[in-house]
């Protein structure tokens, strides 16, 4: 068995309103079939993939969150320390576009203000039902300092690009020193290929019973 040597490990989020195609995007990315009748995600799901970015093999640890409102509280804990996020809306749904700023705020406050976010307009294949124009979304992206791509999880168009573009930006920022992998909660870890390792967080020493009670 081949042991892949990875240099970095990035924690990624996929966020956005329900039904925008987050799970579909992730599944497409990790190589599963597209399903027309995918169920809503309950809580979060997980996928990982090793990609090659500029010659560096990098493991992406991707958390696919549920978009339904009721799962907000559950999914929040997964935002912590994400290095990158795909913020997904559905180009055929104005509603999903309108809620973007809420998602964006959550991501920046819960994950990290420096989180690299790529705006994804999904379902590009359904041009005939488009409700959000490319220009409009580009403008939103520009205003909020996001990268932007339109994708289709159905045809696979731009899916890999989206993840790679986001990863490349993170890597570039590491190299310019803008991002510090050593900082706890950066969402970046050194992989198996590097000797540098994040020092494992110290486990709190088990408290010695200060109470004399026996229970």
């Amino acid at each position: 068995m081949l042991i892949l040597v990875t240099e970095y490990l990035f924690k990624f989020l996929v966020i956005g309103s329900a039904g925008t195609g987050k799970s579909s995007l992730l599944n497409n990315f990790i190589g599963n079939k597209f399903k027309e009748d995918r169920c809503h995600t309950i809580g979060v799901e997980f996928g990982s993939k090793i990609v090659n970015i500029g010659g560096k093999s990098t493991k992406l640890q991707i958390w696919d969150t549920a978009g339904q409102e009721r799962f907000r509280s559950v999914t929040r804990s997964y935002y912590r320390g994400a290095a990158g996020a795909l913020l997904v809306y559905d180009i055929t749904s104005r509603d999903s576009f309108n809620t973007l700023s809420n998602w964006l705020r959550d991501a920046r406050t819960l994950a990290s203000p420096n989180i690299i976010i790529l705006l994804v307009g999904n379902k590009k294949d359904m041009e005939e039902s488009r409700e959000v124009t490319f220009t409009e979304a580009s403008q939103f992206a520009q205003e909020n300092e996001l990268m932007f791509l339109e994708t289709s999880a159905k045809t696979g168009e731009n899916v890999e690009e989206a993840f790679l573009k986001c990863s490349k930006t993170i890597l570039a920022k590491i190299e310019t020193g803008e991002l510090d992998p050593e900082r706890i909660g950066s969402g970046i870890q050194y992989g198996t290929g590097t000797s540098k390792r994040l020092s494992a967080p110290k486990k709190p020493a088990r408290m010695t019973p200060e109470c004399a009670c026996r229970v």
Partner: peptide, 16 residues
């Protein structure tokens, strides 16, 4: 994966 899940788990009740 389970280890990851557990380490990231917020221990919030999932609304089912």
């Amino acid at each position: 994966e389970l280890k990851l899940f557990l380490e990231n788990e917020g221990w919030e009740q999932c609304p089912v």
